[in-house]
Design a protein around this nucleic acid. Structure first.
Length: 277
DNA sequence: CAATATACCTGGATGC
DNA sequence: TGCATCCAGGTATATT
């Protein structure tokens, strides 16, 4: 589910519910996620504390407590995070539950358990966040996400441009769906070696990345907003995908059938007629 | 160092 | 209906 737009939509939903609330109790499942759930830190740093705000860095949500401690959550492939009524029956694969002082719960559900829950101690949070942020790539809506920076980043890399867009240490927030969509919009063939793209192509990548991610955020992301219960959105939103999942369907620009291939192990869709290397 | 393969999980779709 | 197989929006780690 979650690439940058879905994580951002989740954040905005949580922002309507969490700031000012106090966490009255915390509980967790017996399973480990990508890493073990930090029980002790949840008890010591999160339980009893007031939530100040919720930020996002890359595909991670940062729930900031008034104390300075930070609860970090990554949704992995199947993670869902939402504020719901306490009497709602537990779902299979619920892994973290924060009881709030207004009778609602924040619940994290993740069937595949590729998600992550971390806690940064109040006293160490600033240092933890700095170290963490250094390992994450450019924010697509950040000031340094420019054609010049991307062009420089690509200079010594022959990696296919699609794989580069998805390398989270270099560029944050773009997963398989949006990488496909961005390259279709920019008319760039996904296999093009990154170092062969001229500055003009990177200018297009910057422009289309921002346009598509923003459009997806505005549309409520692709799936999860129904779970938030915050914004009053019913169901979930269907994103208008131009290539992803459209194998053999006509290209929306030229009518040629969309081709599906595998690139770096991921399903890759492109129009052979209007995306060039 | 750069690029790819693999591993971590469950569940839904597909095909026999 | 049952069962095997494949595939899925992510990313850390191992391997070439």
């Amino acid at each position: 589910m979650p690439e940058l737009p879905e994580v951002e939509v989740t954040r905005r939903g949580l922002l309507e519910q969490l700031p000012g609330r106090t966490v009255t109790a915390v509980s967790w499942s017996a399973h480990r996620l990508r890493s073990a759930i930090p029980h002790q830190l949840l008890r010591e740093e999160i339980a009893g504390q007031q939530i100040r705000t919720v930020d996002r860095r890359a595909k991670y949500l940062l729930v900031r407590m008034a104390s300075g401690a930070v609860l970090v959550i990554h949704l992995g492939m199947t993670g869902k995070l939402g504020v719901i009524e306490r009497q709602t029956a537990p779902h299979k694969h619920d892994h973290l539950l924060l009881e709030l002082d207004n009778g609602l719960d924040l619940r994290f559900n993740d069937s595949r358990r590729f998600g992550v829950v971390l806690v940064w101690l109040a006293e160490k949070a600033a240092q933890c966040e700095e170290n963490f942020s250094l390992k994450e790539g450019l924010e697509p809506f950040g000031d340094d996400f420019t054609a010049k920076t991307l062009h420089a980043l690509a200079q010594h890399r022959r990696i296919p441009v699609k794989a580069l867009l998805m390398t989270s240490r270099l560029i944050a927030g773009i997963g398989n769906i949006y990488a496909n969509e961005i390259l279709f919009a920019a008319r760039i063939h996904p296999l093009t070696p990154a170092n062969q793209l001229p500055p003009a192509a990177w200018r297009l990548v910057v422009k289309e990345t921002r346009r598509i991610l923003q459009q997806a955020i505005d549309a409520g992301g692709s799936t999860i907003s129904d779970f938030l219960g915050a914004s009053g959105h019913p169901g979930y939103f269907q994103l208008q995908l131009a290539v992803y999942g459209r194998k053999d369907s006509p290209c929306l620009r030229c009518g040629q059938p969309i081709v599906k291939t595998t690139l770096a192990g991921r399903a890759t869709f492109h129009c052979p007629a209007c995306q060039h290397g």
